[in-house]
Amino acid sequence: MTSGSDQTPVTVVGAAIAREDSVLCARRSAPAHLAGKWEFPGGKVEAGESDAEAVVRECREELGVEVRVGEQVGADARIDDRFTLRVFLARLEPGQPEPSPLEDHDLLAWVPRAGLPGLDWLTPDVPIVLELSRIPWSNL
């Protein structure tokens, strides 16, 4: 009999980093079965960390930049039975360098909102892409 501790729910956060009429998108390079798919940069929320703190940390680790975190975009998206994706609007803090793909990505691109649906997204990110096309850009 298993204790179930290996099935602890995990929240994964993503950052929809907005600049002018574009959103920063990241193309996966690892693991192999996800390589070539697009996502919003981010990662797992660590113990004792808020969602916003995780977004800031992940952007620092994955992109080498500091961000200001805004509201959640759309609803939580199920990745599988254990993982839930929660994406937040974000903006680069003033004076930041251009983001660089430091972990698990081989390409970053500033994609105009109208072009977001044309990318080959990871399945959990698709509802977020659709929501980004619906929300008033002035909210960003």
Rank of each mutant, 00 (worst) to 15 (best):
M1C: 13
T2M: 14
G4N: 07
S5L: 15
D6A: 12
D6Y: 11
Q7I: 09
P9A: 09
T11K: 10
V13C: 00
V13N: 01
G14W: 05
R19M: 09
R19T: 10
E20Q: 12
S22C: 11
S22W: 06
L24K: 01
R28Y: 13
P31F: 06
P31S: 03
H33Y: 12
L34N: 01
A35R: 13
G36F: 07
K37M: 12
K37P: 05
E39D: 07
F40S: 01
G42H: 01
G43K: 06
G43M: 03
K44H: 12
K44R: 15
V45N: 04
G48L: 06
G48R: 05
S50M: 04
V56W: 03
E62R: 10
E62N: 07
L63M: 02
V67S: 00
R68E: 00
E71Q: 12
Q72F: 09
G74W: 08
A75S: 14
A77E: 15
R78W: 14
I79K: 11
I79G: 05
I79P: 07
D80F: 02
D81G: 14
F83W: 14
R86G: 03
R86V: 04
F88S: 00
L89Y: 01
L89F: 01
R91I: 01
R91H: 07
E93V: 08
G95F: 01
P97Y: 02
P97R: 04
D104H: 15
D104K: 15
H105Q: 10
L107Q: 15
A109T: 12
A109Q: 15
R113K: 11
D120F: 10
L122S: 10
P124D: 02
V126D: 07
V129R: 11
L130M: 14
L130Y: 13
E131I: 09
L132N: 06
P136I: 09
P136W: 12
S138T: 14
N139H: 14
